[in-house]
Design a protein around this nucleic acid. Structure first.
Lengths: 203, 203
DNA sequence: CGAAAGCTATCACAGCTGTGATAGAAAGGT
DNA sequence: ACCTTTCTATCACAGCTGTGATAGCTTTCG
C-alpha cells in the first residue's frame, strides 16, 4: 500500500489553511475551494482527505478544541501541587491559566476569532451541535476547577454554580469583544479585567 | 405621486421576516430571496424597497439597534430620579435595566441571537463596520451609566473603566451562552448571575 | 381620460457552492 | 516486470447567490 505523503501531516496543513481563511474572511467563506487554494492543493486532492465540507469543518474544529484543551489540561495539572499557596500567587496562576482562553497573542487570537464564527454557525448546523456542546461543557468544567482552586472550595460545591457561569461568560464576552473591537479592548485590558475579577472574588 | 402602500410599514414587515429567517436558519441564510419568501413578497418588490443586500442588512440591523437603544434610553431616564435610593433597590432597578440586553423573553432572545450573527459577520464585512462600532460604543456608555448609578461614582470616573468592560463582557457572554446553550444557561440563570455580580459590586 | 409615478413580477447572467464521477499519474509490494 | 493502492486532477451538474434590465400592472394626480 503506497503512501508517499503523511496523511496526518496533510490534514494539519489543510486545517492551518482553513484557519487562515477563516480569520481573514470569516468561516463562512472557508469553502472547499478557497481552503484548497489557500493550502496550495487541488480541490480533488483535498477531497481525498476530507470526504465532505462537514468533514473538513468538523476535523478543523476538533483540532482547535483539542489544541486549547491540551494547553488547559497541562495548566490544570500543575494546579494540584500548589493548593496551599498564598492567595496572591493563586490568583496569578489562575489568571495565567484563564488567559489560555483569551486572545492574548496571534495563536489565541486566531482561536477565539474562529471559535466565535464556529459557535454562531453551529447553532443552525446540526452536524456541529455535538462539538459545540463538547466545547461548552469542557470550558465550564475547566473554569469551575480553577474557581475551586482560587476559592479553596470543592469543585462540586453548589456555591460555584453561579460563579462558574459568571466567570465563564466574562471570559467569553471579553475574548469576543477583544477580537471584534481591538481598538476598544486590548489584550492588556482583557488581562486587567480578569485580574480585577479574581481579586474581587478572593475577598 | 401615487402611494397606495405605506413604505415604512412594508420595510418593517420585511425586517420582521428577516429576523424570523435569521433566528431560524442563521443570518447567513437571510438572502434576498429567502427573506422575500418569508415576507410573502416577490423579490422584485423587495428590491424596490431595498436596493441591495447590504441595504437590507444595514436597515434591519439599524432597526434592531434602535429598538434596543430606545428601551435602554427609557430605562436610563428613570434612573436620574432615584439617585438617593437604598442600595438594595438600586441593584434591583439596575438588574432590570441590564436585563434589556439579555435574552429573557422571545423578543430579546431574537435580538441577542441575531446580534451574535451580525457581530460575527460584521467583522469581515466593511459595509457593516460602522454599525457594529456604534453598537459597541452605545452599549458601553449605557453600562457605564448604570455602573455609575449603582456605585454612586461619576460616569467619568477612571475607576469605572475596568468595571464597565467587566460588566459589559459579562452581559455579552451571558447572553450568547444563554442563546447558544439554553440547556446549560436558562433565563433565570442569567438573571441570577447578573444579580450576583451587582451585589458583589455594591460592597 | 390620460399621463406619470409607484409598485409588482419576471428573465437573464455571472459567480459562487458541494458533490458525484472519472481518468491518470505516482509509488510500493510481489 | 506488473498490479494494486494511493493520490492528483478535471469535468459536469444542480442549486444557490446578488444584481441589471425590463415589461406590465395599479393607483393617483392634473
Amino acid at each position: 500500500m503506497p503512501r508517499k505523503v503523511d496523511a496526518d501531516e496533510r490534514r494539519r496543513h489543510v486545517v492551518e489553511a482553513l484557519f487562515r481563511v477563516a480569520v481573514r474572511d470569516g468561516l463562512a467563506r472557508a469553502s472547499l475551494r478557497t481552503v484548497a487554494d489557500e493550502a496550495g492543493l487541488n480541490i480533488g486532492s483535498l477531497r481525498h482527505y476530507f470526504a465532505s465540507q462537514s468533514d473538513l469543518m468538523r476535523f478543523a474544529m476538533r483540532a482547535m478544541l483539542e489544541q486549547v484543551g491540551e494547553r488547559m489540561r497541562h495548566g490544570l495539572a500543575d494546579l494540584a501541587g500548589q493548593r496551599g499557596a498564598p492567595a496572591a500567587q493563586r490568583i496569578r496562576t489562575a489568571g495565567k491559566l484563564l488567559g489560555e482562553l483569551l486572545p492574548l497573542d496571534d495563536v489565541r487570537r486566531a482561536e477565539v476569532t474562529v471559535f466565535l464564527d464556529f459557535a454562531a454557525l453551529a447553532r443552525t448546523r446540526p452536524d456541529l451541535h455535538d462539538l459545540a456542546d463538547e466545547a461548552a461543557r469542557g470550558s465550564r468544567t475547566a473554569v469551575r476547577r480553577i474557581l475551586a482552586y482560587v476559592t479553596g472550595l470543592s469543585p462540586r460545591a453548589r456555591a460555584l454554580d453561579v460563579e462558574t457561569e459568571r466567570l465563564l461568560s466574562l471570559l467569553d464576552g471579553l475574548g469576543i469583544n477583544a477580537v471584534l473591537h481591538p481598538d476598544l479592548v486590548t489584550a492588556d485590558d482583557a488581562v486587567r479585567v480578569v485580574d480585577a475579577h479574581l481579586r474581587a472574588l478572593a475577598r
